[in-house]
Amino acid sequence: MKSTRASVRRELRIARPAADIWTIVGDPARIHEWFPGVTACDVSGDTRVITTGSGIPMPEQLLTIDPLQHRFQYRITAPLFKEHLGTIDVIGLDDGTSLVVYSTDADPATMALVIGGAMGQALFRLRDLLEGTAPHCSPHTQAPDGR
């Protein structure tokens, strides 16, 4: 806790080939379709400005959009962050499914966890969007028996 930076990772398996997932993840203008609490985004060159549900505009620098490795990286440049790096890797598996790994490294550490919590929910939304089914019973949803 004495360090002011932290690294948070979330991952989820999605039943779609990596190329299909990349059509969404690799398009910086589609972030509001699957990241919770992002109500709008505007992309201009290597700059993206997202607007959060509380109305805060958050500028980002797009660092890596690699369609071969299926890697997307960006940096939040808002003054609240001393340091930030967000990385999304889409890793194709042999059975036609993919593992999506979303990581955030940030200073202050608290923001790594705030972003990290949201990106975990984002992966569930991405899965629902791609698999075209009703929302899954994610860890955020109550189990049917009330437990």
């Binding site: 919770p36 609490g37 992002v38 509380s54 805060i56 608290t110 705030v114």
Partner: peptide, 14 residues
């Protein structure tokens, strides 16, 4: 639900 919620994604905060 957590209070640290700049995305206002938690129902009680919204």
């Amino acid at each position: 639900q957590p209070y640290l919620d700049p995305f206002l994604r938690f129902e009680e905060n919204a």
